[in-house]
Amino acid sequence: MQESGQSAALQDLDLRQAAIDSCFVELDEEYDILLREVCIRAAKSRISSNDTDDRRIIQAVQALDDIDRNSNELSERLLEWYGAYFPELELTGEPLARFVSTFGSRANVPESHPMFVKASMSMGSELSFADEELLRTFALNICSLYDTRRHIESYIVTAMGSLAPNLSDIAGALLGARLISMAGSLQKLASFPSSTVQVIGAHRALFKHLRGNTPPPKHGIIFNNVVIKNAPWWQRGKLARSFASKISLAARTDFYTGKRDPSIRESMDKKLNAIRAANPSPPKRESKPAGKPGSRGKSRNKKGGRR
């Protein structure tokens, strides 16, 4: 520190000299104190912003699940309730809520609407004004839940882009966020071996396996990714393993460097294509392996229905 004079002009920008020249600090010691404080503060803020980022993303993912549960329940109620007035209307979920909140009574469906004929010929009972008002408000609330859901999704995509760009690249922002949420934090996800990443979210199958005679689960929620979901069954295990290992790598890169590294994606695409090319057709022994993927398929459908 005493030799700070010497250190002038050694880097492109000599902050110490600049600070002294501009009378921002008077002494070398003051500069040292200031530098240290600034560095501590910079490191702290980068750490805490990391922290809150993944906490926020986890909250958002859980909010999505809450909304899904509630909107499903409310939509079913609406279906049953409104069904008495317009049983021929074959809509459910969001389209139903949109329809009810827009028209209320089927008498309001305009001629130009594809449902007009069904509406005018319906065998449902008449809707009183009071009931119509109530149903419309109820449906409107459901619509706004669906709107909020979309809003949260785009929030997650943005937040994941800055917290975990590589994970978003590899798994997609929403699946990536879900993995972080189930792991508890980006740090935990980064610390998992990829064999664990592969079964994250397979709680039920895992407990079943632990209790006894079922085989261990081969994939958890990463199965939701099209890479695996759309693949023929005999490739899925291999694809899932390789997908999980790239997810691990991406999570680590995000946690440790925070920088986007396109080579992860490239190497994954290469690997997946190699697996596809090496396993063009199902393995020979037909009888046993054919049974298993079928049963896994069912449990997958159960999951799909919940979302």
Partner: peptide
């Protein structure tokens, strides 16, 4: 003086380290 940085990228702390 703590520096949260990647040692592969010394450019990112040339303004701090003399």
């Amino acid at each position: 003086i703590p520096i949260l940085a990647d040692a592969n990228k010394p450019q990112s702390y040339t303004h701090i380290v003399e």
